[in-house]
Simulated assay, not measured.
Amino acid sequence: MQVVDDHVEVTETEASSGVKGQGVRYVLAISLLAVIIVLSAIWIIPALLNQ
């Protein structure tokens, strides 16, 4: 971290030193799976009832 004139400059590593979560990946996968199941049920159930 460096103080330059009237502001502070930090490196990319210092700026992103927090823990980066992996939760977004799991939310996306679970949501995609849920949408596929729901849309499949919406399509398959009426098709089975109309036979």
Rank of each mutant, 00 (worst) to 15 (best):
T11K: 07
Q51C: 02
E14N: 04
H7F: 12
V19F: 12
V4T: 08
S31E: 08
N50H: 10
Q51H: 02
A15Y: 08
A15G: 02
I36D: 02
V8S: 06
T11P: 00
V8H: 07
Y26S: 12
A47S: 15
Q51M: 02
D5H: 11
T11R: 03
I37T: 08
H7A: 09
E12L: 15
D5S: 09
V38P: 01
E14C: 04
Q2A: 15
V4L: 08
S17W: 10
I44L: 10
L48F: 10
L39D: 05
S40Y: 07
A34H: 06
L33W: 05
N50V: 05
V10F: 09
D6Q: 15
V27L: 09
V4A: 06
S16I: 11
E12T: 14
I30Q: 04
Q2Y: 14
H7D: 03
R25P: 01
T13H: 09
N50S: 07
Q2H: 06
I42H: 02
L49P: 01
I36Y: 02
L33T: 09
A41S: 03
A41T: 11
I44R: 12
L32S: 07
A47Q: 14
A34K: 03
L32Q: 06
I42P: 00
A15I: 03
A41N: 05
S40D: 09
V3R: 05
V4S: 01
W43A: 11
D5K: 08
M1F: 05
L49K: 08
V3D: 04
S40R: 06
G21Y: 03
E12C: 14
E9H: 09
W43T: 13
I30V: 10
V35G: 08
V27M: 07
N50C: 04
L39W: 05
V35Y: 04
A34G: 06
D5G: 12
D6Y: 13
A41G: 08
E9D: 15
A34T: 06
L28I: 14
N50L: 05
L48A: 10
I37K: 00
I37S: 02
V19Y: 10
A47G: 10
H7P: 00
